[in-house]
Amino acid sequence: MTVESLRRSPLADHPLVSGSGVRLVEIPFLTAVNVQGAPGFPTPPASGVAAWGERSVLWLGPEEWLVVGPDGDTFDLPGGVDVSANRTTIELSGPNARDVLEKGCTLDLHPRAFGAGRCAQTTLARSQVLLWQTSNAPVYRLMVRGSFAHYLADWLTDAAQEYL
């Protein structure tokens, strides 16, 4: 038995809905390191995302980034703070994904204003999220604090009902 098998993601055993218009899945255990100050990696423009190999670098603020890698990825960055377990990731996709977000997100998500390769720290319903659009299909990743994950999953499930 590996130690990893002892892990439990915030949305383990929590039902997430999928249907013709919307698909919701949890992507658990992504590696995430918060870096402020001098980066040792390619940096994105404000509100953007840069690729760093198979990792993504998300802009959080001036001189602040979140480096996201796959589960099990390890890297040591000066000044970095491991926040892998701080949040979990809910992927929201499907033709009505934007409609669902627009029920609780005040950002303008129209393609002229937001799109693949953009990210934003904002609020969705009544929780804070790091919203990251990965594809214009559209596919969104919602990185939410573990303690809010159930609330947000329930809210998304409720909001998605008319698109299932």
Binding site: A46, S47, T106, L107, A120, Q121, T122, T123
Partner: peptide
């Protein structure tokens, strides 16, 4: 000045 226009509730 960093993120652009946002609703008052974020501040």
């Amino acid at each position: 000045p960093w993120c652009g226009e946002r609703e008052e509730t974020e501040f």
